[in-house]
Simulated scan of single mutants.
Amino acid sequence: MASCVAAISGIVLLKTDKSPAKNDIEAADQMLMLMSFTYWLVYCVAFALQKAISPAWEPVILSIKLTGVIAYLLTASCILSLPLNRVSVRQPE
């Protein structure tokens, strides 16, 4: 529950920041952060639905588990992309 609230507050903080990005790098960083918070929120909702839905609805639970796994992997890829984005800027081709 705390993780879900933290993801919502992260999304709200990123969306209420009205200052424009200074360059493309900051815009990409802000977008990666927003995506990671959003994917984590999807994961939290999928996890909560797994606990709330009756085991008799096995196809629905399987679909929700798959959604949770995909959201978890997307969150991890966004978090790993943040430092890689900075490294790519420092090392031009």
Rank of each mutant, 00 (worst) to 15 (best):
59 P>H: 01
72 Y>T: 13
29 D>T: 13
73 L>E: 13
5 V>L: 08
15 K>M: 14
48 A>F: 02
32 L>D: 02
44 C>K: 00
89 V>T: 09
34 L>A: 10
8 I>V: 10
92 P>S: 12
74 L>I: 11
86 R>C: 04
88 S>W: 10
41 L>M: 11
46 A>Y: 03
89 V>I: 05
17 D>M: 04
92 P>T: 10
13 L>I: 11
63 S>L: 12
90 R>S: 15
77 S>H: 05
20 P>L: 06
46 A>G: 05
76 A>G: 14
38 T>N: 09
90 R>L: 14
35 M>Y: 15
6 A>W: 01
5 V>H: 09
14 L>Y: 01
90 R>Q: 12
73 L>G: 15
71 A>H: 06
77 S>K: 08
22 K>Q: 12
74 L>G: 05
38 T>H: 02
91 Q>K: 14
45 V>G: 01
21 A>M: 05
50 Q>L: 06
80 L>W: 14
57 W>F: 09
93 E>A: 11
75 T>H: 06
90 R>K: 13
66 L>H: 10
34 L>M: 13
74 L>S: 09
27 A>Y: 03
44 C>P: 00
54 S>D: 07
79 I>M: 08
35 M>A: 15
82 L>D: 06
2 A>P: 03
75 T>D: 02
41 L>C: 12
47 F>S: 11
2 A>F: 08
16 T>Q: 07
52 A>H: 00
70 I>W: 02
78 C>S: 10
89 V>D: 06
24 D>S: 09
50 Q>S: 10
26 E>G: 10
91 Q>S: 14
29 D>L: 11
34 L>F: 08
51 K>F: 13
33 M>R: 15
86 R>H: 09
92 P>D: 09
7 A>S: 09
83 P>I: 11
5 V>K: 08
49 L>R: 00
71 A>M: 08
81 S>H: 04
66 L>K: 14
72 Y>M: 15
40 W>G: 01
69 V>R: 15
23 N>W: 05
28 A>H: 02
8 I>P: 00
86 R>S: 09
93 E>G: 08
69 V>D: 15
65 K>P: 01
85 N>E: 05
23 N>P: 03
85 N>A: 11
1 M>L: 12
40 W>S: 04
22 K>H: 12
60 V>K: 00
23 N>G: 13
50 Q>R: 05
52 A>Q: 04
16 T>W: 07
23 N>A: 10
53 I>Y: 03
43 Y>Q: 12
30 Q>W: 04
82 L>G: 10
11 I>P: 00
44 C>W: 00
17 D>T: 03
54 S>T: 01
68 G>T: 10
56 A>S: 05
22 K>F: 13
47 F>M: 13
27 A>G: 07
83 P>K: 06
6 A>Y: 00
49 L>A: 03
42 V>A: 12
1 M>R: 12
77 S>N: 07
90 R>D: 12
23 N>C: 15
69 V>K: 15
21 A>D: 09
82 L>H: 09
32 L>E: 02
87 V>S: 08
60 V>R: 00
75 T>R: 03
41 L>N: 03
67 T>L: 12
40 W>P: 01
40 W>Q: 08
91 Q>I: 15
20 P>I: 04
56 A>W: 02
14 L>R: 01
75 T>L: 06
10 G>N: 10
78 C>T: 07
